[in-house]
């Protein structure tokens, strides 16, 4: 069985994100970038499925500028077999990403596609769902447990009320939630081996995908800073203040 795993290069989770002076987006120059944590979980799950003998091949695909290759190398060092780099320099909306992944999937013919449930930069949480729809495949989102038996897929999902277990036939799209697994560190020998693994390159034009967007970013601003609070001496005083501000 073959799996396609999407890996996105994002601003590192530990970086304090700053808005650019002109309000056109956030500052990325000189900022530490790394693999989206949910994508790391997707790679880890694929590697575990391969270690169980369920998967034969894992293809890590990333869409982005030249540096996205580093993110692919990280996936290769974790255990993916080869990489696919879709070169594109501008920001893409989830629909364009889903269309590109579909084009890659039609070429590579995977039995499952594993994606992070969302990226920690735009927090869209749309790509997996759109991709499943475009492919006409079933989808298992927010996975916290994945079991594969033959062509049957059983996924435990994290939902508001608790856990939901669903079953479906492969091929399918799986999006991974935080508690699915704990990603491994790449070992030094595997970092060296990753250097020799192949990364194919393509771009939206070659894949025949129109990535133009109908959305336009108007303005990006910092969240408002929290106002200092006040201390009240009694319940009566609190009620009076609330009334004064017409809050009750």
């Amino acid at each position: 069985m073959r799996a396609l795993v999407g890996v996105k290069r994002v601003i590192d989770y530990a970086v304090k994100v700053r808005v650019k002076g002109d309000g056109s987006g956030v500052e990325t120059a000189g900022v530490k970038m790394s693999m989206n944590p949910f994508c790391e979980i997707a790679v880890e799950e694929a590697v575990r499925l391969k270690e169980k003998g369920i998967l034969k091949e894992i293809i890590a695909v990333s869409i982005g500028p030249a540096q996205a290759q580093e993110t692919i190398r990280t996936a290769l060092a974790m255990g993916a077999d080869r990489g696919m780099h879709v070169k594109h320099d501008d920001i893409l909306q989830p629909l364009a990403v889903a269309k590109l992944l579909k084009a890659v999937a039609e070429k590579e013919k995977p039995d499952m596609i594993l994606l992070g449930k969302q990226a920690i930069d735009d927090d869209c949480n749309q790509t997996g769902q759109m991709l499943a729809s475009l492919m006409g495949w079933p989808q298992a989102t927010f996975a916290s447990k994945v079991d594969v038996e033959g062509s049957n897929l059983t996924v435990v999902r994290e939902i508001d009320g608790g856990l939901e277990t669903i079953g479906m036939k492969l091929p399918a799209v799986i999006t991974t939630d935080l508690r699915l697994n704990e990603p491994r560190y790449a070992t030094l020998p595997n970092i060296m081996k990753a250097k020799k693994k192949k990364i194919d390159a393509t771009d939206p034009a070659e894949l025949g995908v129109d990535v133009s967007s109908k959305l336009q970013t108007v303005k990006v601003v910092e969240p408002p800073t929290r106002q200092a609070g006040g201390v009240v001496g009694s319940v009566q005083e609190l009620m009076a203040k609330l009334k004064e501000k017409s809050l009750i």
């Binding site: 190398r73 990753a194 250097k195």
Partner: peptide
Amino acid sequence: HSLTRSLSTHAPSPFDPSPEHRHL
């Protein structure tokens, strides 16, 4: 993190002469 994690530029640096060194 925030103070020193700007190491990850793409040109080879004397501290990380190859991508593998940087990854390490």
